[in-house]
Design a protein around this nucleic acid. Structure first.
Lengths: 131, 131
DNA sequence: TCGTTACGACTACATATGTAGCCAGTACCG
DNA sequence: CGGTACTGGCTACATATGTAGTCGTAACGA
């Protein structure tokens, strides 16, 4: 449960590629994220190395190259980032956050319906479902 | 409408103090945020200078000292941070974000009620309320 | 008027981040 | 067995960030 490492903006894009499909070699990853972000292959390799060092990635040898895989689930990283965001912007409280997004964002009727359904579910459960 | 400047973690705390009450002198601000974060006064002053340079703060002379005030509304910064967060975590989509927070967070019945009310309002309006 | 002091300005320095180049070794082809 | 190309490792460098010290000077009190 140790907090996942802090993952920077650029690093996050690399992580996404790996969360999307793993294990993969640096070359494969670079092919996926490089062009879209106008990164040289070297840049991607640097980020891979840093992510390994941070403990966000793991790798196994495959002949002369490495195959990288995520060492932390995306889930955990999202949770951690979300917590920080929530903390900074809304003093850690959830309902103001939700209210803010509901007010600020365009939502289709369908989406509103879905959210209502989720709230219903939520209301059904007793407090403290959070294990 | 130019995007508000990127405000770092530590800087954000200083901004909060100023959004809370302005204009204020460096000393006053340091008094408020320094102890809580174990920052020396020098640290606070550095952040003030950086924030001014970034265009996040403005100041007016008051004798020998400066009185700082926010140059960008908190609103705008929150919006900008929220957009980035949403982009990174949920591909920019709002409803998955809302769904995620609803599922992940404990919400009291009252809060759920309030959100329902908000959704009702939202559903009432036609699409594209975004002014 | 002169000293004191409270401010802002400038400097410092380690780590993080964005971006990328170069080198050495190794696996594989010929 | 030697050459070649690909791969990771190390180096580089500018900017951002966290954290803080020092200095010159203006304002104010004595």
């Amino acid at each position: 449960m140790s907090a996942p490492p802090r993952i920077s903006d650029a690093e996050w894009l690399v992580m996404e590629a790996i969360w999307g499909q793993a294990p993969r070699s640096a070359g494969q990853i670079a092919e996926e994220v490089g062009p879209a972000n106008e990164w040289s292959e070297a840049t991607v390799k640097t980020m891979l190395a840093r992510l390994v060092k941070k403990g966000a990635l793991d790798f196994e040898r495959d002949g002369k190259r490495y195959l990288y895989r995520a060492a932390v689930p995306r889930e955990a990283c999202v949770r951690s980032e979300a917590r920080e965001f929530q903390e900074r912007m809304f003093g850690g409280r959830t309902s103001p956050l939700l209210a803010w997004f509901v007010k600020e964002s365009p939502l289709s009727d369908t989406e509103i319906e879905e959210l209502r359904a989720l709230l219903d579910e939520k209301a059904g459960q007793d407090e403290g479902g959070q294990a």
